[in-house]
């Protein structure tokens, strides 16, 4: 039943899958040219530099990106790629020393990719012990605004629990994950022009009454009063019940008994 082609939805997906299969099967022989790699228009490069502890910065890798120019004149970076230089022996040793001392591994990027370094470098740092897993894992989020780099979030792609354990990487190569991040648009304030009156009505509900209510003032007296009243009612209800029961059994006796008791009380 479930796979029956009579169900139009399933049929539709089946057709879609068929097309997908065919499109997968088709292989274009067109040569895909990557603009950036051929240094075509809009290609741009900037350096990632690193430092071990408080040392100076050295080139550590190269970012390549495409500069896309929009109709309104704005420019944004797209198609970011990163090639990391392998650690030299000296750098390995320096890095090991950072790991030993739980020190900082620092990186920096220019704050403007067109005229590096721009006003200043954008610096980020991480405790070196956060990076090694099997290899060295790094996660780089570059916050951009057009051709400007505001800040860079640099660190391990996962958790880096404290206290940090000393662990040497088995492979001295970097697994780099890079992300370009631009600003988001804020959600607009909701505008209910037609509902403004209704909204005010809603506000009206929350307006507390100007006077303290009767209950708020006298609840401490009213509750005992209520209890007394309830007590009285239950008593009153019990009485007739008793009487009713008594009447059912000895209707005459009570009637007879009542006048003498009244007499007795006198």
């Amino acid at each position: 039943m479930g796979l029956s082609l009579s169900n139009p939805l399933v049929f539709f997906f089946f057709i879609l899958a068929l097309f997908a299969f065919f499109s997968l099967a088709f292989q274009s022989d067109e040569l895909l040219v990557d603009d950036d790699e051929f240094g075509l228009e809009g290609g741009i490069q900037f350096q990632l530099e690193h430092a071990f502890g408080d040392s100076d910065f050295f080139t550590a890798g190269t970012f390549t990106a495409r500069l896309k120019t929009w109709n309104h004149g704005g420019q944004t970076l797209t198609k970011l790629r990163f090639s990391r230089n392998a650690f030299s022996a000296e750098e390995k040793e320096k890095f090991s020393r950072l790991l030993q001392g739980d020190d900082f591994y620092r990186i920096r990027l220019p704050s403007n990719v067109l005229s590096p370094p721009g006003r200043d470098f954008v610096v980020s740092s991480v405790k070196a012990r956060c990076l090694p897993r099997d290899a060295l894992d790094e996660h780089i989020v570059i916050n951009t605004d057009g051709v400007n780099i505001l800040g860079v979030n640099y660190g391990a792609p996962g958790a880096c629990p404290y206290p940090r354990q000393l662990k040497l990487p088995s492979k001295w190569s970097f697994n780099s994950h890079t992300i370009l991040k631009n600003t988001e648009q804020a959600p607009r304030a909701p505008i209910f022009t037609e509902d403004i009156l209704g909204g005010e009505g809603g506000e009206g509900e929350t307006v507390p009454p100007p006077e303290r209510s009767f209950w708020a003032k006298y609840w401490m007296y009213l509750i005992p009063l209520g209890l007394i009243v309830m007590n009285a009612i239950t008593q009153a209800m019990n009485l007739p019940e008793e009487q009713a029961a008594g009447q059912a059994q000895q209707p005459t006796a009570v009637q007879r008994g009542a006048p003498p008791s009244a007499v007795r009380r006198r």
Binding site: F104, S111, S125, D145, N148, G151
Partner: peptide
């Protein structure tokens, strides 16, 4: 020691 910096573009922010 300097650890990090965030640089806002002076022409837009």
């Amino acid at each position: 020691r300097d650890l990090w910096s965030v640089v806002f573009p002076s022409d837009s922010e």
